[in-house]
Design a protein around this nucleic acid. Structure first.
Length: 561
RNA sequence: AGGGGUGUCGCCAAGUGGUAAGGCACUGGAUUUUGAUUCCAGCAUUCGUAGGUUCGAUCCCUACCACCCCUGCCA
């Protein structure tokens, strides 16, 4: 077994473009990408794809990837989100050195370039109302109408624009528009607004500005100023590329750099929702326990769930990148987490759904030590001691009064191994007044202790985990499952809230090895035969960890049933 | 007077005028004190459909079909 490494990347359309550019020495500049979030919310799995893609490209081509906050909308953006985004990208394992920028860093330049466009007759101040502008924009089949203000002179525009900046006008009184083509079949070119008046405090520039540039104008210029070579964004910006190119073409004389915008298909994942609007509803409607709920597809949630950065990187490589709309099944992500955790996580024992197993021929007062390896793939991690005694906790699912075909665990007359301990033969079980299983009885075979010469003298198929009832500790464990019960929540205009999986969170008390009580927060373990768990980084307390189930182990037995 | 994209195995995804990579899933079989892991083998005569060009087409041409995106002073 070797460490799961991220394989050499296979060809994709973005790499092909970069390879060509390098072959042609197009840039004479290191490959430079950027991850450009707007700090107005929490990052989710979809962002992880973009982050791994952009930073991965920079890493593979020995270039750099900038982290740039697209903070041009003062009404929505907050420092809190900036901080959480920084945490998330770092957590995913990437580093951007001093290449951290804000679009708001460029407000002065953006403004100066706007004056340049006005002077060139390429932008004008429009004083129509928002409604009038919408009406005059036209439709799919009708060309837009020119604004009555479209022919203002550069001098008049300059004067108005400067007064907009000076705060002489109310919000919405005027906008600055690029003068392109109101009849263009591409709406983005029907004289797009590039500046609007907003008397609002900005999280970084405070009250310095009351006019703010819009995305299409800001993004391309920010890219160019940072000498980005490949500006990778999602498909819905394909229609914006002509505008991206228009702005940079017009500004070529003063900026002299023109990155290539490349669009890829955003991530679609089954069994979750990724739209910001829906995530907000889930949080505000208390369908989940906040933005870092382990069931939510946010990165803060993923981290609490026990998902790992390496797992996300593996996932990104595994799903590839293309321009085709596609749906990735949640099982792919879960499997990536298993693959990482299988190598990474130490093994421990926990009994999640306990029932007593009584070894009738084991002396009541007695107990003994058994040894369990901490990681079957890494013997260098050593072994730990586990106490065995007469009364044990085992999983309810490990007993069947009348076994179904192929079942090879506990049932009367059958032998199984108590993992790392003895082979026992099941004799009978007890039931309470309600008919529920209350205890299982067995006898052990003293010569079969694991690690002794006679260990293999009796061959058994079944192998179950257990904990000494007298020694085990009880802790809170949260069993998480997929948030939605169907692959495509809300498909066919159904209310997606109706598709929520009612059993996505189960809080239970489970038994664990006593030493586990002292572990630190955010430690990953495989609870043998149960799955991967992590000590919750928010709710664990000294001596009293809380465990979150990250993902179960693959189980071909339940599949067969 | 609409425009921009995408269609290759169940799910992703390479490829490209010379006869369909890879991964995941799945199915066998081996190993296994986790029904896990690991290992080995199998898994598209076919590339949305129909025509055309060509010795040869998934690739070029034509038409058609399906799906996604676009009329914020959001990003």
């Amino acid at each position: 077994m070797s460490e799961p490494t991220e394989k050499p990347a296979i060809s994709n359309f973005i790499r092909n473009i970069i390879d060509d550019d390098i072959a042609n020495n197009k840039w004479n500049h290191p490959v430079t990408t950027r991850f450009p979030p707007e700090p107005n919310g929490y990052l989710h799995y979809g962002h992880a794809k973009s982050i791994c893609l952009n930073f991965g490209l920079a890493r593979d081509y020995a270039g750099v990837c900038h982290l740039r906050f697209d903070d041009t909308n003062p009404e929505k953006e907050e420092q809190e989100y900036v901080d959480s985004i920084i945490d998330a990208v770092r957590w995913l394992g990437f580093d951007w050195g001093d290449k951290q920028f804000f679009a708001s860093d460029y407000f002065d330049k953006l403004y100066a370039y706007a004056e340049f466009l006005i002077e060139q007759g390429l932008a004008y101040v429009d004083s129509q109302s928002a409604e009038a502008m919408r009406e005059n924009r036209g439709t799919h089949i009708v060309a837009g109408k020119n604004s009555p203000y479209r022919d203002r002179t550069p001098a008049e525009n300059l004067d108005l624009f400067r007064r907009m900046k000076a705060g002489e006008f109310a919000d919405g009184a005027h906008v600055l528009r690029a003068k392109i083509d109101m009849a263009s079949p591409n709406f983005n070119l029907r004289d797009p607004v590039i500046y609007r008046i907003r008397h609002a405090e900005h999280h970084r520039t405070g009250n310095k500005w009351c006019i703010y540039p819009l995305y299409d104008y800001t993004h391309c210029i920010s890219d160019a100023l940072e000498r980005i070579t490949h500006s990778v964004c999602t498909l819905e910006f394909e229609d914006h590329r002509p505008l991206y190119d228009w702005v940079l073409d017009k500004l070529q004389p003063i900026i002299g750099w023109h990155p290539q915008q490349i669009e890829f298909a955003r991530l679609n994942l089954t069994y979750v929702v990724l739209s910001k609007r829906k995530l907000i509803t889930l949080v505000e409607g208390s369908h989940v326990d906040g933005w870092d709920d382990p069931r939510l597809p946010t990165l803060v949630g993923a981290r609490r769930r026990g998902f790992t950065a390496a797992g996300f990187r593996l996932f990104t490589d595994r799903i590839g990148v293309s321009k085709g709309d596609s749906w990735i099944d949640m099982s792919i992500l879960e499997d990536c987490m298993r693959e990482d955790l299988n190598f990474t996580a130490e093994r421990r024992i926990a009994v999640i759904n306990p029932v007593k197993l009584i070894i009738d021929n084991y002396a009541e007062a007695e107990s003994e030590i058994c040894f369990a390896p901490n990681h079957p793939l890494k013997p260098e991690l050593g072994k730990r001691e586990i106490m065995l005694s007469r009364e044990l906790w085992v999983e309810r699912e490990d007993y069947m009064e009348t076994p179904s075909k192929g079942y090879f665990r506990l049932f009367p007359g059958n032998k199984v191994r108590l993992r790392y301990g003895y082979v026992v033969e099941c004799t009978h079980a007890e039931y309470d007044d309600n008919g529920n299983l209350s205890a299982i009885h067995c006898n052990y075979l003293p010569e079969t202790k694991s690690g002794t010469a006679g260990a293999d003298s009796v061959k058994v198929k079944g192998n179950i985990h257990w904990l000494s009832a007298a020694h085990a500790s009880a802790v809170e464990v949260r069993l998480y499952d997929r948030l939605f019960a169907v692959p495509h929540p809300g498909a066919d205009d159904r209310d997606y809230l109706l598709d929520i999986n009612p059993d996505s969170k189960q809080v239970i008390s489970a038994y664990i090895e006593p030493a586990l009580c002292d572990i630190a927060a955010e430690q990953h373990f495989q609870f043998e035969r149960n799955g991967y768990f992590v000590s919750d980084r928010m709710d664990s307390k000294a001596g009293a960890p809380v465990f979150n189930r990250t993902v179960t182990l693959k189980d071909t037995w339940v599949q067969k049933k």
